[in-house]
Computed example of a mutant assay.
Amino acid sequence: MSTTRPTHPEIALALLDLKRKHREAQAVADLRNDVESIAQLAWAEDKGTATLRMVMAVHGWPGHTLAGEAGADAAWWLAQHSDDPTFQEQALELLQEAVQAGEATLRHLAFLTDRVRVRTGRPQLYGTAFAVDASGVRAFAVEDPERLDERRAEMGLEPFDEFDKVVRLITKLPPATA
């Protein structure tokens, strides 16, 4: 990865700002779980998707050279949290190309791959996607679970058991319903 200045710092800043707004809206929605905060989160996701879609249409995936490491991370965050499955599939294709070109990380590719697979009813490959509801936290189904840690290692991810513990520690469960 490069630590040089991005060729398009204005894109990096826009993506970083949208990621910040999404994270703020997400935190409020998680805490309050009311119509207004959920609407604000939906707005942040829609704005992130629309902006990233425009960037991708002009430049392809906003990788390390274009947006810097932080901007590329923000682009992945916005794609990962988009509510548009078709857009996520398009982003995944461009992200795969960017990884092959050394412009994006394997970690981002693993997470977005799993997100797209789960959304399309297929088992995930890397064990990065979890369901959270009142009954607890659980990983979505995994393809060929015997080779999961091998695939995770290829993508630069820690063993699944370690990741699972972290996810369970940081995940806030919704209140139980009566």
Rank of each mutant, 00 (worst) to 15 (best):
S2G: 09
T3R: 06
T3L: 15
T3N: 15
R5D: 05
P6H: 03
E10I: 08
I11A: 04
A12Y: 00
L13N: 07
A14I: 04
L15S: 04
L16W: 00
D17H: 10
D17S: 15
K19F: 04
K19M: 14
K21N: 14
R23Y: 05
R23A: 09
E24P: 01
A27Q: 13
V28H: 07
V28I: 11
A29G: 00
A29K: 05
D30N: 15
L31A: 15
R32S: 12
R32P: 00
D34S: 02
E36I: 09
S37C: 08
S37Q: 10
S37P: 00
Q40E: 12
W43Y: 11
E45F: 02
D46F: 06
K47W: 07
T51H: 13
T51M: 08
R53K: 14
V55F: 00
V55L: 01
A57E: 10
A57T: 06
V58D: 06
V58T: 14
H59W: 12
G60D: 01
G60W: 01
W61F: 12
P62H: 03
G63N: 02
H64P: 09
H64Y: 13
H64S: 07
A67S: 10
A67Y: 01
A70T: 03
A70H: 08
G71F: 02
D73T: 06
D73V: 00
A74R: 01
L78A: 06
L78P: 00
L78I: 07
A79H: 01
Q80S: 05
D83C: 09
D83N: 15
E89F: 02
A91E: 01
A91Y: 02
E93S: 14
E93V: 07
L94V: 02
E97N: 07
A98M: 07
A98Y: 07
V99S: 04
V99K: 00
V99E: 09
Q100K: 11
E103S: 03
R107A: 14
H108C: 08
H108E: 10
L109M: 08
A110N: 01
F111E: 04
F111G: 03
L112N: 00
T113A: 04
D114L: 07
R115N: 02
Q124F: 04
Y126P: 12
Y126M: 08
F130V: 03
A131R: 13
D133K: 09
S135N: 13
V137M: 06
A141H: 04
A141V: 06
A141G: 03
V142Q: 09
D144V: 02
P145K: 13
P145C: 11
P145N: 11
E146D: 15
R147Y: 08
D149G: 00
A153P: 00
M155F: 09
G156R: 03
P159N: 10
P159Q: 14
F160I: 08
E162W: 04
E162S: 13
F163K: 05
F163L: 13
K165N: 09
K165Y: 06
R168T: 05
R168S: 09
L169H: 08
L169C: 09
L169V: 02
I170Q: 15
I170F: 11
I170A: 13
T171I: 05
T171S: 13
L173M: 11
T177C: 05
T177W: 07
A178M: 05
